[in-house]
Design a protein around this nucleic acid. Sequence first.
DNA 1: TTATATCCGATATAAATTGTCGGATATATT
DNA 2: AATATATCCGACAATTTATATCGGATATAA
Lengths: 132, 132
Amino acid sequence: MLKLTRKVEYSLIALRHMQGKSIDSVSSTKEIATRYNIPLEILAKTLQHMAKENIIEAINGPRGGYRIKAKLKNINLAEFFEKVEGPLGLSDCFYDANCMQIEYCNIRTPIQRINANMINMFRSMSVQDITN
Amino acid sequence: MLKLTRKVEYSLIALRHMQGKSIDSVSSTKEIATRYNIPLEILAKTLQHMAKENIIEAINGPRGGYRIKAKLKNINLAEFFEKVEGPLGLSDCFYDANCMQIEYCNIRTPIQRINANMINMFRSMSVQDITN
DNA sequence: TTATATCCGATATAAATTGTCGGATATATT
DNA sequence: AATATATCCGACAATTTATATCGGATATAA
Ligand code: SF4
Ligand code: SF4
């Protein structure tokens, strides 16, 4: 409960890795995977996903790889998590409505409040706060 | 990612239900299950668990059921989640160490910080804030 | 004695997460 | 042009976690 997924962690590990390099140099999937002991294929998917979200950009071909494209300082954690994993919410009735209890639920409103607190907390931190 | 489990939700629903009744009256599993459309056996387990944690107490026999035992105002949400679901942590390396990346991980410390923020947020609210 | 309730280990099912495979496309280098 | 190295991407498999069910016990009010 309340855990980050590996995909998010791998994304952050990769971003931090790239952040430590000069702006124009690229990092290949293999380089990152071996460096941090991450399964290659999964990391590949993860990086492709971040590229599609314009957080990083892909350079094809040999000597290719990825480099950071967005300003990490301007992406807050709530945004980032949503880009990588989809909608955030302590309960899924906040963005989807197939809960058997929804009609009788007596805690939906209070949990909404906690949810808002949590999201605000993530909004108050940028990706750069982690990768620096 | 970052979702409460049903067990936690069922616990809170039940607590809120009991809170709305007079101090000495008890609520049976069946009563709560039918009222909120929760699978009976699961709710039973959930209530047993809370009883073992001394949050509620069980009254056996016919006309039995559960009633609130602890001061909900004095249980903060972090405590409560831990009682119901076990240790809290955005990553499991914070209370368990079988992560393939742990030796090379470059984000462990920053994530610890976020984790602390999250736990503090939950500590700042009591169960009663939800059940009231 | 009976009916209604909790108790609780074992097991089954479902869903989400995590990881793998196969084969495609792009491009720098030779 | 050929080759090697890289990203790309859909489909699939395995694993783990969460959710739900079953069977049979114990406690007690009526
Ligand atoms: S139980 Fe209540 S809060 Fe939880 S998902 Fe269902 S409606 Fe939302
Ligand atoms: S990847 Fe890093 S932060 Fe995540 S569990 Fe492993 S060691 Fe901890």
